[in-house]
Amino acid sequence: MTDQHRAGPNWPFWVVIATVTAAYLGLLLGMLAATSVHSAPRDLWRALGSPDIQYATALSLVTCTVAALLSLGVAIPVAYLMSRGHFPGKNLLDTLLDVPIVLPPMVIGLCLLVLFQTPVCRVIERFVPFTYTVYGVVLAQFIVGTAFAVRQMRTTFDHLPARPEDVAMTLGCSRGRAVWLVTLPAAKRGMFSAASVAWARSLGEFGPILVFAGATRMKTEVLPTTVWLELSVGNLEAAIAVSLMMVALAVAVLVAMRVVGERP
């Protein structure tokens, strides 16, 4: 008896997949296009010329850069431990490291606020005041940025073979020196990506900053705070201008990550 079964065509499968992709992309581009054309460019430029917005832009760029560098400094050792280490409780630690990613942003801000009411943190605040200051902005950005940087660095270390590091140790290196001389140079693209992800996350951080550092103009106002403050007073042009600037910065980071990531 011959087999009468015939496999169906593949095209319906690809049509469904292409339709879903196109619909999502359409929503995404539609959102950005509508925002871009809503106001006249002249009004947007005028809004960006305001001293408040210029201060928020400068503060955002500085705090995001500091937070991203701090995030990278913590993410490298933590991710290395998670990638190469074998120890009891590793799964639990892995889950804990993802907590800032899944926690509602406002809750992170609230937790920071409560933490800095404890006696130990009050002592710290005598030397470096965090609550409602620029340092608080950096700390709030650092908490979330680090969680993303750790993920990125862990993927990087997972993809780098451990053997060259072992060989370096047989050639006279301690573990630390082998990592420094062999592993970290090989991980430089991952480090750039991790810092970029942390920077981009920090740029968009709003909830924790609002709760922990406040939204005081010319003091702790960063770009997402500006969008919120301008919207709350009905200044849509300024909110759109700042939003478009943030979109441009985010796209620039994405492009830079792609360019660095694809370089041989």
Partner: peptide
């Protein structure tokens, strides 16, 4: 490992990539 006076060649060479 570095104090043992051994040279080690693994299967794939384990080159230092950079």
């Amino acid at each position: 490992p570095g104090n043992r006076g051994v040279g080690y060649v693994p299967q794939d060479g384990a080159m230092f990539p950079t």
